[in-house]
């Protein structure tokens, strides 16, 4: 991580961040309008049974496709006129902080890992990976602490679901342990 060099580099960074935000805004507006166009095109492939009365299964999707296109265009125009969206505020959001993309990517990666692994290694272990990975990414140290908490959390949730709700989450290596099954 490079240290902030001085006022000029800070200003340059802010300008770059602003430019990125603007590009993102255009991309979002474009994606929404694009989804609208796709909706309009794909609606034409919806089968209309002969018995359909006044309004078949296509009319409403056409309308929503049109709304998506209009809304997307409106966002593009608003962005072009310099009206950018106001980023949401929150108790834990540092309004002055730069976007930490690496953190977002890491969180997404741990979440994907959990989704992929749950059928292989079961709920308690995959949840431990998600919890420990996410907490570590967000700054939990030392690394084994979130691992222990995550594993405990996965097992407790599994037991609660089994005992309280009668649902059996996939147990993975803990298969056969009685209190983990509903």
């Amino acid at each position: 991580m490079s240290k902030a060099g001085g006022p000029t580099s800070a200003a340059g960074r802010a300008a770059r961040e602003g430019r990125v935000r603007r590009i993102e805004e255009y991309a979002l507006g474009g994606l929404i309008a694009g989804l609208g166009i796709f909706t309009l095109v794909d609606t034409a492939t919806i089968v209309v049974p002969g018995s359909a009365n006044a309004m078949g299964p296509r009319t409403f999707p056409y309308f929503i496709g049109g709304l998506l296109v209009l809304a997307g265009m409106a966002v593009l125009v608003a962005t072009w006129r310099g009206k950018l969206g106001e980023a949401e505020e929150g108790e834990d959001v540092d309004a002055d902080a730069r976007t930490d993309w690496l953190t977002v990517v890491k969180l997404v990666a741990f979440f994907v890992a959990q989704a992929v692994l749950i059928d292989w290694i079961g709920w308690p272990l995959s949840i431990a990976i998600l919890f420990a990975g996410a907490a570590w990414t967000l700054g939990a140290r030392p690394w084994w602490k979130p691992v222990v908490i995550g594993l405990a959390m996965g097992l407790v949730l599994q037991a609660v679901f089994a005992a309280g709700l009668g649902l059996s989450l996939p147990a993975g290596p803990f298969e056969g342990v009685p209190f983990l099954h509903g």
Binding site: G29, I32, L35, G36, T39, I46, V47, V48, P49, S51, A52, G56, P57, F60, P61, I64, L67, L68, L70, A71, G72, A74, V75, V77, A78, K83, G85, E86
Partner: peptide, 26 residues
Amino acid sequence: SVSRGLAALALGLFLGLIGTDTLTGQ
């Protein structure tokens, strides 16, 4: 922002469309 509110609404409406049409089964 009106445009962003409408866009959010339209996205929600689109998500609601996904699936089987209740009246015609398409």
